[in-house]
């Protein structure tokens, strides 16, 4: 039994060492990084766009998620139904399809609208010329709102009834109950999941490159095509996203420690 364990141990260590050695060998003798300096400014710009997409979509989507979660709990029924349908549709379809529907679908409508309303092109030039970035931001925002709206619904439901009743008994107006008791308590439920949701959102952002956004992914795919090197840019990309992930996780745990967890 013991010798079997030893054999297994040697096997695992051996495979790991061989893989590590192969990667190292490749990195030292076969990988080419000469493109790095040339593309550094573009990479920095791409990193900035990725961060911008992430932060804006999380903030805007998070804000949008609050009413979406709330109306599902409080009603009125038509609004609750609409919010629920919204969440179901967003969560039930791939983000890539949503993004392409928004970008290329709307794009194909512009000429038709222009035919129906001749003034459209002159008056709405800004809309037509909107950069792919804004379409991606829009798609990512509603996507985050859809997922987070569902979470917020659960959080609003999770606040003990007694606390709300107590607040009402104090003579608080419904608005005050919401802002002073219900919402702050619900947010505290959501906070621990927010780090994970933000990481998932970060992992969706590379899709933006399919609608002409030169984010990190867009820049690396340009590098891939210009230099015909596949692994180096992708490796760099993987490492960069890993770093961003760890920054997010670390940042949220920092914030969580700042928020008092009184019960």
């Amino acid at each position: 039994m013991n010798s079997l364990k030893l054999a297994a141990k040697i096997l695992i260590y051996g495979t790991l060492l061989i893989v590590a050695a192969l990667i190292l060998y490749w990195l030292v003798f076969h990988s080419r990084w000469s493109w790095f300096v040339e593309y550094l400014p573009l990479l920095i710009k791409g990193l900035w766009l990725t961060i911008l997409l992430l932060v804006l979509s999380v903030v805007l989507g998070g804000l949008l998620a609050i009413p979406i979660g709330l109306v599902q709990v409080t009603g009125p029924a038509p609004l609750a139904w609409a919010a629920k349908t919204f969440c179901t549709v967003i969560r039930g379809t791939p983000l890539l399809v949503q993004l392409w529907l928004i970008y290329y679908g709307l794009g194909s409508l512009f000429p038709q609208i222009g035919m129906a309303y001749p003034g459209f092109k002159e008056n709405f030039m800004w809309l037509i010329r909107l950069d792919g970035f804004y379409y991606a931001l829009f798609a990512f925002t509603i996507s985050f709102a859809g997922y987070e709206g569902e979470v917020m619904r659960g959080a609003f439901l999770g606040v003990p009834r007694g606390e709300l009743e107590a607040a009402r008994a104090f003579g608080m107006s419904p608005w005050k109950v919401l802002t002073r008791v219900w919402f702050p308590r619900a947010v505290r439920f959501v906070l621990p999941t927010l780090a994970g949701e933000t990481v998932l959102q970060l992992q969706s952002t590379p899709l933006a490159f399919t609608v002409t956004v030169m984010d990190l992914m867009g820049v690396t795919s340009k590098i891939r095509q210009d230099t015909f090197r596949i692994f180096e840019p992708l490796m760099l990309l993987a490492v960069l996203y890993m770093c961003l992930t760890f920054v997010i996780v670390w940042g949220f745990s920092f914030v969580e420690k700042m928020v008092p967890q009184k019960r």
């Binding site: 990481v199 970060l202 992992q203 969706s204 952002t205 590379p206 899709l207 992914m217 596949i230 692994f231 992708l234 490796m235 990309l237 993987a238 996203y241 890993m242 992930t245 760890f246």
Partner: peptide
């Protein structure tokens, strides 16, 4: 796997 976007893993594994 959880720290790297799925799309990048797909590209990496697909080619690499």
């Amino acid at each position: 796997v959880r720290a790297v976007p799925e799309l990048i893993l797909i590209l990496l594994l697909f080619y690499a």
